[in-house]
Design a protein around this nucleic acid. Structure first.
Lengths: 245, 245
DNA sequence: CATATTGCTATTGTCGGACAACCGAATTAG
DNA sequence: CTAATTCGGTTGTCCGACAATAGCAATATG
């Protein structure tokens, strides 16, 4: 048998361009907000044509590492939690995530988040939570839209107040995926508004009292309750989450 | 004053191309695994040049929606949990996530995951966990590499056995970010191996006994213990997580 | 006849050049 | 001195071209 060679890595030039730029970004040589050379200069430096440079730029653009700033110059960008959440939830939705998977994750993660909230939330974040709760409490029982947005806002505000971008990104990603389906639950459950408002009120009270365990317990109960609404609404738990652009 | 018009959205053609294709993917018109037209055909259908088509393709490629398959044809792809996790963790790392944020999130999320594991893990996944634990148990106390990989494998296997892609993607993302820093902790703590092995053993026992509360408690303790190692190792909790390619 | 080799063809990856639209800055007009 | 204009540079898009590659068909070989 003759000697066999491994196929040597033939990477497209545009990928190499993207990698080279990314390398300088993550290494810190290119800091956030700093401008990249123009396309023409990149061509010279890399020794490739603009077509290849531009294709590489598209990769970095989609990855959220660069964007067009003033004067159309390319500037290095730090992806914000909200964008990461948007990308992740979109990918998960396209990957075929089901209602069951999302709700299970909510049930597994949010009690821990509530526990941290009880330990951490400052008065400002707490006031925002109370404000959202008040909005929800005074909404009419048949005003589905207000109830839904109030319920989602509660989760959003709680996540935002945790002073933790990693947790925020993940919780936001979950929030985005449930937002649309909440309406169906609330629509199907007769006294949904009262149940939601009561649970959120208890959670807020526990947070204010710095009672971590109680906050976690009520959050778990709250999410269980919402999941029960799913069964009432006869939603197929294995149905795919739709892509909430 | 003359009537003023809002500046109309001038989106680059390559972005429109990407959106058009993405639309057909998420709408289901293009199913996973199906092939896209060739670049030339796309040019004709969209009425643009290959340069623009190719730039649009790069966006979709980076988004994980398409890839080059056999015969070089572009085929529609469903992003897997691992890829989503990789993208998310990279973005978070580049966004400046700190050790504190990641560890807090671990502490908040993993107990709930352990609870679900106790209820859900099948015998196969449990066997895999035990196998990893055995590997760790028989590692030498000074074999940092084996200890680290064993500790990470434990988290990975637990997440993988949950039959939940959403949770898997998020937990994997966390795992990727801590992997590198674990070595430092273990290196600094003298009896790290024993403590890790003991905690993981307890968690596995609780899972096997289907004791959800105990599994969650031991997991919380386990992560607390690892976090304590951080202080011992004198790692700055507000230091940025580096990008672990 | 079955298999291995060869050549053909379609497609991609890359190149070079071109031009209108657009932005910011320099310059000129008021 | 301010406002309008010009100007140069950059981007977005187009066109055309070519080498490299992979799949497929035709051919040679046993």
């Amino acid at each position: 048998m003759r000697h066999t060679f491994k196929p040597l890595a033939r990477e497209p030039v545009y990928a190499k361009v993207a990698q080279a730029i990314e390398q300088d970004i993550v290494s810190g040589a290119l800091k956030e907000g700093s401008a990249l050379p123009t396309e023409g200069e990149l061509c010279e430096q890399f020794g490739v044509t603009r077509s290849s440079v531009r294709e590489g730029i598209r990769l970095l653009e989609q990855a959220g590492l660069i964007e067009r700033g003033a004067a159309k110059r390319l500037i290095v960008k730090s992806p914000k939690a909200a964008e990461i959440a948007a990308v992740a939830s979109r990918s998960l939705a396209h990957g075929g995530a089901t209602f069951r998977e999302v709700w299970e994750t909510l049930a597994a993660f949010y009690p821990g988040a509530a526990r941290l909230a009880a330990a951490r939330l400052d008065s400002k974040a707490l006031a925002a939570l109370k404000e959202a709760h008040a909005q929800l409490a005074k909404a009419r029982a048949d005003d589905i839209e207000t109830i839904v947005s109030g319920a989602v806002d509660f989760f959003q505000l709680l996540a935002a107040g945790l002073d933790n971008r990693v947790m925020l990104a993940m919780l936001q990603s979950l929030n985005m995926m449930i937002g649309a389906s909440l309406a169906r639950i609330i629509d199907a459950a007769p006294n949904a508004k009262k149940r939601i408002a009561d649970a959120q009120g208890e959670i807020i009270a526990a947070i204010e009292a710095r009672d971590e365990t109680k906050a976690a317990e009520w959050m778990a109960r709250h999410i269980d309750d919402l999941m029960r609404g799913y069964k009432v609404a006869k939603v197929d738990p294995e149905a795919r989450i739709y892509y909430g652009a």
